Amino acid sequence: MELGFLTVPGAELYYELSGSGPLLLLIPGGTDDSRDFRGLVPLLETYFTVLTYDCRGVSRSRLIGTPTGVPVETQAEDAWDLLSQVGGGPAHVFGTSGGGQTGLELAARYPGAVTTLVTHEPPVARFLPEWDTRRDVVPGVCEIYRRQGADRAMEAFVSGSGLTDVLDPVRHAPESPRATLLAQERAVRMRGNLDHFLSRVLSFVVDYQPDIDALEASGTRIVVGVGGTSRNQFAHDTGLALADRLGTSPVAFPGGHAGFVTHPVGFAARLRELLGA
């Protein structure tokens, strides 16, 4: 495995590169980092050259200069810099949650850069129906964060977006003891990245609206993934809304919103199937 740092405007990005075959970029969600793919990467690197990283301001990817908000467009520029300077060419891309939003902007902004994009439960709130109150949860969450801190803000986000059963130990039980350990370790890392996520990332991610026309013109094959056990949850429903806008059928992955952590074996098999490996 090659480990390194790539300096980009305003940040230094930690990345990992391993395996052989067609290039596959894995983009983590808002509070996640490349370690959240530890169960997935060994099951992919026989078929692909796998590139993943910590997004700017998250875990090992430090910000340079005065910290500012991180729009999805900036996240896409980071992904492009990694692809062009580290990966060396066009790639399949898998992005989950906020990383799914980044993948959509990357494909729209750089036609030809992304061969196949699998965007897993991207929180495209603006594509939900006008009557759906979950469209407008985030501004209140950000205000609670400013006044009362991260823990209360996340309580409000979980309640307001219908995620109250996301940690249900029966509905979302990991596929193995190792996956259980990976999920527990992920929870600790998420807490360490929560302030950055709430103060600089969340509002941009949820307000982002993909350019459907640009995506259709990009030449990228786009697959929208949803969790098999996350029905009626916020990000599952936004995934369905995106698939409807694109005129495609969503593909179910094992597990819920974090199925890549809790069900890595089944998740990797579905991803390989979609990418023709």
Rank of each mutant, 00 (worst) to 15 (best):
P169Q: 11
S176V: 08
E273V: 09
D244Q: 11
P264M: 11
D132S: 03
W80Y: 13
T164P: 02
Y14R: 15
G39K: 11
G88D: 05
N193S: 12
G39E: 12
I27Q: 06
G227H: 03
V72D: 04
V50A: 04
E273R: 12
A107T: 05
Y208F: 15
V226W: 02
S34R: 15
E77K: 10
L24G: 02
S199I: 13
T119S: 04
P210R: 01
E175N: 09
L246Q: 05
Y15H: 12
V188M: 05
V224P: 02
D151W: 09
T7D: 15
P111W: 08
L104N: 03
T116P: 04
V93D: 02
S61N: 08
L83F: 04
Q233F: 09
L167M: 13
V170L: 10
S203E: 14
D168F: 11
R200V: 12
P123W: 06
L198Q: 09
P250N: 08
A150N: 04
A214P: 03
A153Q: 06
S20W: 11
G256E: 02
V118I: 14
G256T: 01
F253H: 00
R109G: 03
S59P: 10
R221P: 06
P177I: 07
P250K: 00
L215P: 01
T46W: 13
S249G: 06
G69V: 11
G87E: 05
T248N: 11
H236K: 00
A91V: 04
T74Q: 09
T262V: 06
Q148A: 15
L246H: 07
C142Y: 07
A235K: 06
T102A: 01
V226M: 02
L117N: 01
P67H: 11
R35I: 11
F94E: 02
G57P: 10
T31L: 10
G219N: 08
N232Q: 14
I144G: 02
D207T: 12
C142M: 07
A269S: 13
I27V: 14
I64Q: 09
V114D: 00
M190T: 14
R171K: 15
D54A: 05
T96Y: 02
W131H: 15
D237M: 05
L13M: 12
G95A: 01
S59E: 13
W80K: 08
A76R: 05
L44D: 09
G65R: 08
V206N: 10
P67Y: 09
D32Y: 02
